[in-house]
């Protein structure tokens, strides 16, 4: 369902019909995407987030290792992030929102927390993403935790502080974080 504020904003921008199609999960076509490329960023993000909430719920899948490569219903966005002359944070988030709106709702839209960095990856969750993927073993260790465990906790914390639920997917099986000891 489109909230009143988003509905008003879509209507004001002449995009209500497009928004309603997106909410029905119809997937947007090329002219729609071209229109949204020029629309206000938060309007596009609001629509992508509403579509995500309606069709994908609040769960965020966290994928590492083999699972990140093999998951069949995951659209892995390969964003050209991290270069000083590359796309800025705002451009990356727009691409993520547009990917959500142009991708069938049966698929997750995922971004790499290694590519984007944790801050942008967390922000991406409000812009239509519902999966994060990457290698857990590439960062510093804390004194009492292995690098992997610390990284895992860090990412889980980010997701939970975004008001979303975590589901780890490692190997072929999904493991809700609440069920782990």
């Amino acid at each position: 369902m489109i909230g009143r504020m988003l509905r008003n904003a879509l209507q004001h921008a002449g995009l209500l019909e497009l928004g309603e199609r997106a909410m029905r999960g119809e997937g947007l076509d090329l002219p729609d995407i071209a229109t949204l490329e020029r629309a206000d960023l938060l309007l596009v993000a609001g629509l992508a987030d509403a579509v995500r909430r309606q069709h994908r719920g609040d769960e965020v899948r966290l994928l590492s290792g083999v699972a990140a490569k093999r998951e069949p219903d995951l659209l892995r966005l390969n964003l050209d992030a991290g270069r000083s002359d590359g796309p800025t944070g705002e451009e990356l988030l727009r691409r993520i929102a547009l990917a959500r709106l142009s991708t069938p709702c049966s698929k997750s839209v995922g971004v790499s927390f290694e590519q984007l960095g944790l801050e942008l990856a967390q922000t991406a969750l409000a812009f239509g993403a519902d999966a994060l993927w990457g290698d857990l073993e590439t960062r510093r260790t804390l004194p009492l935790l292995s690098g992997k465990a610390a990284r895992r906790q860090e990412i889980e914390g980010l997701v939970q502080r975004s008001g979303r639920r975590v589901r780890w997917v490692e190997g072929a099986q999904a493991v809700p974080v609440e069920s782990r000891s």
Partner: peptide, 17 residues
């Protein structure tokens, strides 16, 4: 902008693995 629109689909696809 028109070039951008024409390329939108290709660009959109190019961001996907």
């Amino acid at each position: 902008m028109k070039v951008r629109e024409r390329n939108a689909e290709r660009r959109n696809l190019s961001v996907f693995s």
